[in-house]
Design a protein around this nucleic acid. Structure first.
Length: 158
DNA sequence: ATTTACAATATGA
DNA sequence: TCATATTGTAAAT
């Protein structure tokens, strides 16, 4: 498992790579890994990740994503995460809507659980999922990030 | 195999 | 606004 930092105006994120692709992303505040050069192909993935994170923090749609390694998650979680990726930037869905889209009506809570287990926040936009009345649920890196990102994205969508 | 804990939601007071 | 019943998954027993 390889790690690398992403320096942004909001702090230093930490990305983790497996042999298949990006497998985790941590918010600033984490212990920074010892700096070192990434062997290929991780170096290229990291370039894409850095760019994507930069775009997200700027409230822009993401142009390109590195390959995501979601092999940790259960099949259900993987389906949820892929569904999240289909939410357009600047929009939000409710947990219930996601659940229904997955043909699991009533499984809103299960969707929430999957979001919490999401190893790659930001790139897998779990921050675009809110309660059925636009309220906030929770967020892995702290609700502050969720607010920050949603405001940035939706402000651009007026 | 059972029980418990969740980033939910609809309903009724 | 608050309390409660119901729902699907995952992790712990």
């Amino acid at each position: 498992m390889l790690t690398a930092t992403i320096q942004t105006d909001e702090g230093d994120f930490v990305a983790e790579y497996s042999e298949r692709g990006l497998c985790a992303l941590h918010f600033p505040g984490h212990r920074l890994p010892p700096p070192g050069r990434l062997p290929e192909p991780a170096a290229h993935w990291h370039y894409l990740t850095t760019q994507a994170v930069g775009e997200l923090l700027a409230g822009m749609p993401v142009s390109k994503l590195p390959p995501l390694d979601l092999s940790d998650g259960t099949p259900f979680q993987q389906r949820v995460w892929q569904a999240l990726c289909r939410i357009p930037a600047g929009q939000t869905r409710s947990y219930g809507q996601i659940a229904t889209a997955l043909h699991k009506p009533g499984g809103a809570r299960a969707v929430g659980a999957a979001c919490g287990a999401n190893p790659i926040p930001l790139l897998v936009p779990c921050h675009r999922v809110v309660g059925s009345h636009g309220q906030m649920g929770g967020f892995s890196g702290g609700l502050r990030w969720k607010e920050f990102l949603l405001e940035r994205e939706s402000a651009r969508n007026e």
